[in-house]
Design a protein around this nucleic acid. Sequence first.
DNA 1: TCTGGGGTCCTAGGACCC
DNA 2: TCTGGGGTCCTAGGACCC
Length: 415
Amino acid sequence: MAVAATILHADLDAFYASVEQLLAPSLRGKPIAVGGGVVLAASYEAKAFGVRGGMSGRDARRLCPQLIFVGGHFSDYKRLGDAAIKVIGDFTPLVERISIDEAFADVAGCTHLFGTPAEIAATIRRRVRSELGLPISVGVARTKHLAKIASQVAKPDGLVVVDPGAELGFLHELPVELMWGVGPVTRTRLEAIGVATIGQLARLSERSLARLLGPAAGEKLAALAWNRDPRQLKPHRRARSAGAQSALGRTPATEQVIRPTLLHLADRVATRLRAKSRPGRTVTVRVRFADLKSVTRAITLDAPVCSTMILARLADGLVRAILAEYPREKIISLLAISVSHLEEHWDLALELPLGLADEALRPGSPTGMARFAADCAIDRIRDRFGWEAIGYGSAALEAPRSVPDAFRELAEKDL
DNA sequence: TCTGGGGTCCTAGGACCC
DNA sequence: TCTGGGGTCCTAGGACCC
């Protein structure tokens, strides 16, 4: 018996830009970009000129002189994104949210209540449009991969259902870059051997695919090209890491730059870890030099950390090691901290041997207990009075960030 | 052509243990 | 002592996704 197509992939169209056009009707039908120095999102009218998310504001304006830049109503993005996902949740609890504006759902268990998957998808689109005022595209298929591709094909503001009997016919006509896992590098490699469509990729032998892309990637793409997608829908997946980074333009690799930046990054990361009681054992830093080449260093500890000061100091040590290895690099363009190997749930108040690792780092420093108390006090003050109410010394003096913190938060995964 | 930030997964090599 | 195999963990880098 053929399995029915019950996987939905729903994706809000040009999300941030659509919200801006919703909030300000005068912007509707016009090319707009959210952001300033960097384009965070572009409306479809702007995309028609070649404007893309991530582009510099200057490049975007060159492509589209009449482009309108808008500030960004970040709390509205959050509110409306949550509301759209909630509409999907009205049909099934089996929802896997991928980002602020995108989710998978499996409606196999609720068709007797709400109709066929195609009808459910149409209802979701109608409700998001009427209740929230936003366009959303939906793909329906038997697998996540195909549902995702279907929603991309459906854009803007459309619905595409792929019936089980029509899968390969649909899939094989499409360009390879629509496949999950085919980015610029893989696309270029495939292009070099004359492969442009998923059908052409499917007809390659596994051997030549493996030679081209490596055994694992080759096997994976071959499976997807024949619509064998092993990925299950996972409603509640927990984050595996948490991090923060800061682009610095071109800046000298000096103490005065590095210390406050790392402290700020450690503060952001550690605060999130503490809020969810998920300290982590592995600390990774990344330094990007002026030529955009980047280097990472990691250390895995016996005990997990989530203290701001401990994290900052560990990161500082790793960054120093990198700079010592590359003495000729005087200019850096980015610093990043990430913590992984996160604990599932850690009783911070009970597990204070965290302080032992601390002592080992710098004998004579305040104890882990004192650190813990200080972090908790700061967390509580911020809960009441806001993030800016208090901070760690020079971190507050850091140069203005290129991207607002509110925007960063939208990209954070729930820990 | 080189823009920013938060993530996931994979790979290869080495250390270490049995 | 040498050789081999299997497994786990860690590090560094890379591709990719939103």
